[in-house]
Simulated assay, not measured.
Amino acid sequence: MKAFFDPGQTAHDPQTFLANGVLRPSPEQPRRAEVLHEAAVAAGCEFSVPEDHGIAFISDVHPSEYLAFLQNIHARWQRMDGASEEVVPNVHPNRHGVSYPDGMVGQAGWHMADTACPIGPHTWASAYLSAQSAVSGAQAVLSGEQAVYALCRPPGHHAFSDMAGGFCFLNNAAIAAKALLRAGCRPAILDVDVHHGNGTQGIFYDDPEVLTVSVHADPARFYPFFWGHAHERGRGPGEGTNLNLPLDRGTGDDGFLAALENGLERIELFGCDALVVALGLDAHENDPFQGLAVTTSGFASIAARIASLDLPTVIVQEGGYLQPELGPNLRSFLEGWQG
């Protein structure tokens, strides 16, 4: 399988992660990418460094005001007396206000949903390269590849059009889907991360041209909490083109595969001719987030069932955190896909 990754994606090295009121090391470490790269090579992936396709594909999803914020906020932040080494907001307006602030502290709160997405000196560059991996994956599919793996790190599915969150800055799956749409395809996004792809849902919630399907742990008491519930179906012209399939905490292979069947049926009925899989490996039973209990062999079954749709597919890496089975989980998925 053809694959894309740029070593510069590892330069982003977040140090701040506030969980349950406690400051902890970020689980989204650069080492994740190294482990995933090694596993993908072991599964037979042939990696290339992605081309720089420029900003246009990214700006199909993210407005220029937000991109300017991501590109410049760290340098601006460092000019503030007593500033932290990373940009971490201390105020979150939740968009109830109507005025966009001039000051950097206010803008950080506006554009950053939580404290899991600190912006450091290399965040923009790494996120940009991660997005280029996704675009290169889409372009390879458009050129005739049946399935391509984009090792996107930092991940993307919690990023809204103008707001970072949950380790994510640019929504790589949405960018890949928009690249396919731009070329005349009718794409669907299938998210199998343990966390709901709330940013992806938000980007396409009013859009009838892209179907979004997510199988994930029930957000009633699990991140991202406010999105991912079964009643969320899309809005306006996009009503009926968003499908959430939340699962009880601790659900294993059989329950996950049963929900997946419902998602795949909807994808087939949508009549799509290209697929983006937002691949999270954090649904594993030993992942640090402990949301679901998919086994390593279960990832092979999940992959084989999705691959049976026989759609040109961009596999975009999302979550999956450092633990002994992280690499084997990716290898299982990719080998299951390839049969």
Rank of each mutant, 00 (worst) to 15 (best):
F5P: 01
Q9V: 02
F17W: 14
L18E: 14
N20L: 13
E28N: 14
E28R: 11
Q29A: 14
R31K: 15
A39H: 02
G44A: 05
C45Y: 08
C45L: 05
V49F: 04
V49K: 10
P50S: 02
H53P: 02
F57N: 11
I58K: 12
W77D: 04
G82N: 04
G82K: 00
A113Q: 06
T115W: 06
G120K: 02
G120W: 04
T123I: 01
W124T: 04
A125V: 05
S126Q: 09
Y128V: 04
A131L: 03
S133W: 00
G137H: 09
V141T: 08
L142V: 05
L142F: 13
E145K: 11
Q146G: 08
Y149S: 14
R153V: 08
G156H: 12
F160C: 15
M163V: 12
G166C: 12
N172V: 00
A177N: 12
L181G: 08
P187H: 04
D193I: 06
D193H: 02
G197P: 01
N198R: 11
T200H: 02
F204Q: 07
D207A: 08
V210Y: 05
L211S: 00
L211F: 10
V213N: 03
A217I: 07
P219F: 06
H229E: 09
E239Q: 12
N244R: 14
L245Y: 10
D248A: 15
T251P: 03
E261V: 06
N262W: 03
L264F: 08
C272G: 11
C272W: 01
A274M: 07
L275K: 06
G291P: 01
V294C: 14
T296W: 07
F299I: 03
A303K: 01
I306L: 04
Q323N: 15
Q323L: 08
E325M: 13
R331L: 12
F333C: 11
W337M: 10
Q338H: 13
G339S: 13
